[in-house]
Design a binder for these strands. Structure first.
Lengths: 335, 335
DNA sequence: CTGAAAGCGCTTACAG
DNA sequence: CTGAAAGCGCTTACAG
């Protein structure tokens, strides 16, 4: 069996209370006793049992993150930021893949509640009322990352989608494009809620351009396949397009793939612009011009907000909105 | 405060032992009492405290996975498999990003030991003697995934790299290529240990071809940047190459990017073949011909091996080697 | 500075 | 079928 604090105490000829004190290093302990304890710890190769400790101080030092999917680079980059921030403060992170499924999401929430995680980050799905009330009821701090929270009192980390799409569209228009197609994912929202779509429209309006309804397509998701299918449809039904703005990088790559399949050259025949700036944006040929969301930083921030709250440094509230930048690469041509 | 088992017992007018029994459902409990308990659970909205439970049965129902990096698709796909398998059996998974760093790896191992995780999956790094002896000493079941374990007694999940590279190279040769370059990542191993390299060589030998030393390049890592730099060097120093075999998909995309930058067309001027078959392999232009490793399945298997051991279904031992397949897409041209 | 004791929220023999 | 009691491995007032 693993040695316990009792074994250490015995060997060091002190009480378990003292061992605990030197290990947690708050109270004063005489140098001598301290040394004796440390030596016993060494000799026995004692590792404190964090679960017993958690039971006492009602803190598990673990955060959980819920993703619809975990194998795309979006999740990966966000997770990377979360993980770094958590690790710096001695926390672990549990990742949960909900598949966007209702039941699975709920079953995770139940599990996390039982495991008494100290905080939850809900990423990239709609935070249904049912979820948030569950979490509220078990009193676990919650932050929504880059998804729509229906309730304004729940802290949120995001970019200003509307503004970002406005800037991207204006950029395209500035490059001389007047016939721009749009592909957006988000079957869960109404068009008015979709900032990337409204930004697209407003930019047109402000530049005295009209959006042809057939030029914009609402897709199921944000994945490559969606972009491929959507791109093909758009290329077919909307002749005369000189550019397509896709609301994710994967979608944009899908469009490029669809164009490639029909012998349409990017950017000479068609300009393509993405959204996110995932690592794959610079791997594509031609490298993708896109809107950068600081995903790593957003992940860090989500974790930090939770951690600051847990460690009583700062109240959990407010909405962090991150700035977005246009990354010019090679997929957009100046007309 | 959250209701405890005591509150439930009181309200249902039974002992905590009984509550525990109905919640864990082993012993017989009279239907009546059972109903009363369940109702109390409902009314109080009681959620069992998993940490207290863990303390009793010395099981945390959590697995940990160590990756050097978490934002690439390799990790993402593997993680996806692990997560699914774990979730099906009621386990959670903690992910740790070591950055390949020695100290950070050790600090994670220490943390995981204290948290008493039930199993560890070590992915894609060299399992140093120091790590494995640490883990052995704290008696946490360990599986190495797709990395080199120095010690044969530690269970391992992998593909047969040598055989896969042999097949890939033979495929290229079969397509009429005789001047093939090779890019491999793995500064940590000797060339003889690198199966992908030895397979490349053996295929040449068996086909009566010689490998020109300048045609093969050892890179620091497996990332896009490495491939870009390596590809550029190779294209520069090795004239007359008709194909390049890269030991990862990212590396292959890097090569394609380097080729593109010099106006070399893939596959008409140069064929490129990758390794892994990550999602991005089919997103590239042209879509990448590559060697498929069943990463998702390998992740599942790693978790399942651990879980079977933990739940006493099967002893933890042996090495699972997964089959590899060549996925023909558009980046290789028949000469 | 240090120890005895209670308690965190469960589970599990042991009786009955 | 059910309860009283001990115990899992820690931490933390409370005394001294």
């Amino acid at each position: 069996m693993e040695p316990t604090i009792k074994d250490v105490a015995q060997r060091a000829k002190v009480s378990t209370a003292t061992v605990s004190r030197v290990l947690n290093g708050q109270h004063w302990v005489a140098e001598q006793t301290k040394a004796a304890v440390l030596q016993a710890v060494q000799e026995l190769n004692y590792k404190p049992n964090a679960v017993a400790r958690s039971l006492m101080n009602a803190q598990t030092k673990t955060l959980a993150i819920l993703f619809p999917n975990v194998s795309d680079m979006f999740s990966g980059t966000v997770l990377s930021g979360i993980e770094d921030a958590a690790h710096e403060r001695g926390f672990s992170v549990i990742v949960c893949k909900t598949g966007g499924g209702h039941d699975r999401t709920l079953s995770y929430l139940q599990l996390l509640a039982e495991k008494r995680v100290d905080g939850i980050i809900f990423a990239s799905e709609v935070l249904r009322e049912e979820y948030s009330s569950f979490v509220q009821q078990v009193r676990i701090p919650l932050v929504v990352l880059s998804g729509e929270s229906v309730q304004p009192e729940i802290p949120t980390i995001r970019c200003n989608d509307h503004q970002a799409a406005y800037a991207a569209t204006s950029y395209l228009i500035g490059q001389g494009h007047e016939h721009i197609g749009m592909l957006y994912g988000g079957a869960h929202e109404t068009p008015e809620q979709n900032g990337r779509l409204t930004g697209f429209h407003e930019a047109h309006r402000d530049h005295g351009l009209v959006v042809v309804p057939e030029h914009v397509l609402c897709l199921e998701g944000f994945a490559f396949k969606d972009g491929q299918a959507g791109g093909a449809r758009l290329l077919h039904q909307a002749k005369g397009l000189t550019a397509i703005f896709a609301s994710s990088d994967e979608l944009a790559l899908g469009v490029m793939s669809a164009a490639y399949a029909r012998g349409i050259q990017v950017p000479s025949d068609l300009s393509v612009m993405g959204f996110d700036d995932l690592p794959l944006a610079e791997m594509s040929i031609p490298p993708l011009t896109t809107v950068r969301q600081p995903l790593y930083g957003m992940g860090r921030r989500a974790a930090t907000m939770l951690l600051d709250h847990i460690q009583d440094i700062k109240k959990l509230e407010g909405h962090a909105v991150f700035p977005t930048t246009i990354i010019e690469r090679k997929s957009v041509r100046r007309l």
